[in-house]
Design a protein around this nucleic acid. Structure first.
Length: 610
RNA sequence: CAGGGUGUAGCUCAGCUUGGUAGAGCACCUGCUUUGGGAGCAGGAUGUCGUCGGUUCGAAUCCGGCCACCCUGACCA
């Protein structure tokens, strides 16, 4: 299930301009748009640089920003789009507190799961509170008391609210903040399947999200994703295409398959353990070499010629027992923990280094041979590592490696004990899992939305049941759906700008039309501006009049910087000829002179086709 | 948290090596001039030099602690 903007862009029946209300008319001299010529030294990402320079945001602390008037207008437009699309699928808006009692988070174990990411505080009575990083617990708590019958389901509720996460490293302006604006929605169902079930509503949200991001003018891909600490089964992320994106996604150009790097499957790969063991097994001294490339170089090979054995341990009920899992991949590949988990059929985590060493595992120098030396250990091998080469690998002894290692000769136990499975992260050029012969491509993206099928994870933990038709209590099935609203605004800028500044998609632009007065005190220009602004506002357009006592240069530069889609310039030359200069922000050059009588229509049609 | 870097005027930065009590450009204020792509002239205002301590007759400058912010990595909307 994959949607790209181009495939679903025909849904925008809700237009850019307001059909119900007059547009706003604001004057630059009466609002606050503190543009700057230079960017703050610490801004590196384009959206960060331009949002600061264009006077949209100012930083108050790491990952904490003020939203100035322009930013707030854009955010409200994104919110409006979100509200309209949620309305369309029958979700109802409400609002939760930002505070959340710690006790509530303890019920689901998420006080631990979120850990240091949680902003916590203590009230005067010594009670623990958190600033909510998301709202599953409060909404289930509320629903428990408010919904007791299956007849009240399904139900979808959402809110737009400030969220707090003490990120280890806030960065890139609004793209990764500690305080940010989020839309979070939650759906409640009697079952996963069938009418009104989670699957059906999840699909509704998926479609709504596609419409929202399309209407925001974003180019995006919906990808399969891991659920992370939110939990649940299926999950999709909505990724805006941008070079500065933190996320890596893999797409198959043939089948349209798309997934986060954490989740991406890899197509069939040939493997064999058989082969002539011609080279001699040789032990080599490799002291003090951090990094696999250094070791490989010393051994006369490269990372792709080495076997990397990562030691995991199974997550067991009994904390005193330890069962290890050896995950073997080629040296140039990365082990994927979720895939290892699936391959061995139980939860795994990276082994505790001290404990593993005490058990005889020479962490950093482990070879697959350890399978024969520690009972209860499992060995999983990635197909690319299950090849009949002469491998270089660890010698199971500190500071030593071996070369000339063959699966068929040197494993020391029956090869049947080695399970072969896809356990690594996908990379550019890997075979597609959905189309024979096709190769996966990598792209970078900004995650603006994430939807999850939670199932009963939270309702189980918090005991949320309703009485079903058969008069028996039934645990409620849930879905949850998030959009980073402030991040979406940043993504718009990230995706759409040039050297001069922002180029707003019309639907989320703070204003639709900017009118520049060449002479701020010229009667004819003022009058023309007022008339045009009134007519534009009557047609639903928001108008910003640059009435500052500035020379033309700074006004044009600022206009490019703040990126309003349509610019009208009122100067004597054009007015003498009965026209005004019309220019779209995305067009190059000076624009064209349009007769005054036609210019409003021209603006409206330019906006509607944007 | 690990590794790296930076804190001096609203912003961008110089000054620190070699200690002597703080500067430039932009922005800001006043006046004149100018008015189609960040104008010109004249005048003016602006600082706990991140913070605490140490050395010294004297510290932006040397030494130490702390704090803040940024960048690279593991998490997430």
């Amino acid at each position: 299930m994959t949607t790209t903007a181009s495939a679903s862009s025909s849904t925008g029946e809700a237009g850019v301009l307001s059909t119900s209300a007059r547009g706003d008319i604001h004057r630059w001299s009466q609002t606050l748009i503190p543009t700057t010529r230079e960017a703050p030294a610490d801004a590196t990402t384009p959206s960060h640089v331009f949002m600061v320079r264009a006077g949209l945001i100012r930083q108050l602390a790491a990952g904490v920003y003020d939203y100035l008037p322009l930013a707030w207008r854009s955010l409200r437009k994104i919110q409006r789009i979100i509200r309209e699309e949620h309305e369309r699928i029958g979700a109802m808006e409400m609002l939760f507190p930002a505070f959340e009692p710690m006790d509530l988070l303890k019920q689901t174990g998420r006080d631990e799961a979120y850990g240091d990411d949680l902003f916590t505080l203590t009230d005067r009575h010594g009670r623990g509170l958190a600033l909510a990083p998301t709202h599953e617990e409060p909404i289930v708590e509320m629903m428990k008391g408010a919904v007791t019958s299956y007849k009240q389901l399904p139900l979808s509720l959402y809110q737009i609210q400030t969220k707090y996460r003490d990120e280890p490293r806030p960065r890139s302006g609004l793209l990764r903040c500690r305080e940010f604006m989020m839309k979070d929605a939650y759906s409640f169902h009697l079952a996963q399947k069938g009418e009104g079930g989670l699957d059906a509503i999840y699909d509704d949200f998926y479609e709504a999200y596609s419409r929202i991001f399309t209407r925001c003018g974003l180019s995006f891909t919906a990808v399969e994703a891991e659920s992370g600490p939110i939990g649940g089964s299926a999950s999709h992320e909505f990724m805006v295409h941008a070079e500065s994106g933190e996320d890596k996604i893999l797409v198959c150009p043939v089948s349209g398959y798309a997934a986060n790097v954490e989740k991406a499957e890899i197509g069939e790969r040939a493997w064999t353990f058989d082969g002539d063991a011609s080279d001699e097994l040789t032990k080599r001294h490799t002291p003090g070499m951090p990094g696999i490339d250094l070791v490989a170089g010393h051994l006369g090979t490269d990372a792709a010629g080495m076997l990397k054995t990562i030691v995991f341990e199974r997550v067991l009920k009994d904390p005193d027992k330890t069962k290890y899992v050896l995950a073997v991949v080629r040296g140039d590949h990365e082990v994927n923990e979720a895939k290892v988990r699936d391959a061995v059929g139980s939860g795994v985590r990276l082994a505790d280094e001290k404990k593993a060493k005490a058990d005889g595992l020479a962490i950093g120098y482990v070879s697959p041979c350890m399978i024969g030396r520690l009972t209860g250990t499992t060995l999983v091998v990635d197909p690319d590592a299950a090849q009949a080469n002469a491998w270089a690998t660890g010698a199971d002894e500190m500071d030593h490696h071996v070369t000339g290692w063959y699966w068929s000769r040197d494993l020391g136990v029956d090869l049947e004990k080695a399970k072969v499975a896809d356990i690594r992260n996908a990379e550019e050029g890997d075979p597609s899992p959905r189309a024979e012969g096709a190769k996966l491509q990598t792209q970078r993206g900004i995650e603006v939305g994430h939807i999850f099928k939670l199932g009963t994870k939270y309702s189980d933990a918090m005991g949320f049941t309703v009485l079903a038709e058969d008069q028996k209590p039934r645990t409620v099935t849930m879905g949850c759906y998030g959009i980073g609203v402030s991040r979406t605004m940043a993504a718009c800028v990230e995706m759409s700008h040039d050297a001069g500044g922002i180029i707003w998609p019309a639907a989320v632009a703070p204003y639709h039309v900017q009118i520049i007065l060449m002479k701020h005190d010229d009667e004819r220009q003022i009058e023309t501006a007022n008339t045009l602004a009134q007519e534009l506002a009557a047609r639903g357009a928001d108008v910003l009049i640059d009435d500052r006592k500035e020379r033309p240069g700074p006004k044009f530069k600022d206009a490019d910087l703040i990126g309003i889609p349509v610019r009208l310039t009122l100067g004597d030359k054009a007015l003498d000829a009965g026209g005004v200069e019309f220019k779209r922000r995305k067009d190059e050059g000076k624009g064209e002179v349009v007769p005054i009588a036609e210019v409003v229509d021209r603006c409206i049609s330019a906006l509607e086709s944007a």
